[in-house]
Write a protein that binds this DNA or RNA. Structure first.
Lengths: 139, 139
DNA sequence: AATATATGGTTACCTTTACTAACCATAAAA
DNA sequence: TTTTATGGTTAGTAAAGGTAACCATATATT
């Protein structure tokens, strides 16, 4: 099998184990991976618009609208006014912050388990390459 | 951002660009990535049972049942008897073989474009690591 | 100033992909 | 012979996301 075929096969065959396991961990907090990804983003970067979030995650706007709606229902995020009347900034609620702290522990544990035996340098290297592939695809 | 967080963020944010672009390329041949993955597998390994395919792709059996059903409708694969009365071996039809040859050209082009600027060694290294993560997750 | 275009966001509708639970038929083990 | 395991299917449901069309507001153009 050629390297480029190997690459995409392994990329794909990690996907379900990753998603299913992550969602198992997150179920405790009534979250799914797509929702948690939004929370994680606004934790580390502060309040963000829907477009920011969509761009960051590489999905379309309606997808983010829906994900954020679920987080609003859970009372984990709230909307604050943006720099004009169109924009909505999404930020964590107090409840969202509390939950996040628990989730971060859970998820860190999950991620470290998943990455057992893989050095930080390797993790960074793979991140760099996956990002490059993403950029190649978007050109 | 910590290396393990980076790792999973980039893993995820490559997913939609990859899937969408691949499906665009495959649309020409009336295929989707999940279907092509099955064809690809039986091209390189010969006829396989549904369980083999499910294990290889890391998805559940019903998922493969349906994917194979679509390939049967397209007349790209056919069923031959397995080693007992339960097993079904899936193999390419003549039409499937013809189509595959065209698709392989298309997809190779797509994959090489996606991996532009990434050496074979790097591709192999990333494959190895993604496989390891998958195995860690399955433990 | 008036019109046209761009941007942020939503709604409606549809699709891909996959899961679980329950089941059938056959095979292997007790 | 009965029990358990294996290969596969069906039915029902869900996560996640896409496109097209649209509203409201903002920016650019004439």
């Amino acid at each position: 099998m050629k390297p480029h075929q190997l690459f995409f096969h392994h990329y794909r065959s990690m996907y379900r184990p990753y998603t299913n396991t992550a969602n198992d961990y997150l179920g405790k907090h009534k979250l799914f991976i797509a929702q948690w990804a939004v929370m994680k983003y606004i934790i580390s970067s502060g309040p963000r618009t829907l477009v920011d979030i969509a761009t960051y995650q590489q999905v379309e706007k309606p997808t983010i609208t829906r994900t954020v709606q679920k987080l609003l229902e859970l009372n984990y995020v709230e909307v604050i006014p943006g720099k004009d009347k169109r924009e909505k900034m999404i930020q964590l609620t107090e409840l969202g912050k509390q939950v996040s702290e628990e989730v971060e522990v859970t998820i860190e544990q999950f991620q470290l388990k998943a990455l057992k035996g893989i050095s930080s340098e390797e993790q960074i290297e793979v991140s760099r390459i996956l990002e490059k592939v993403k950029n190649n695809l978007l050109e």
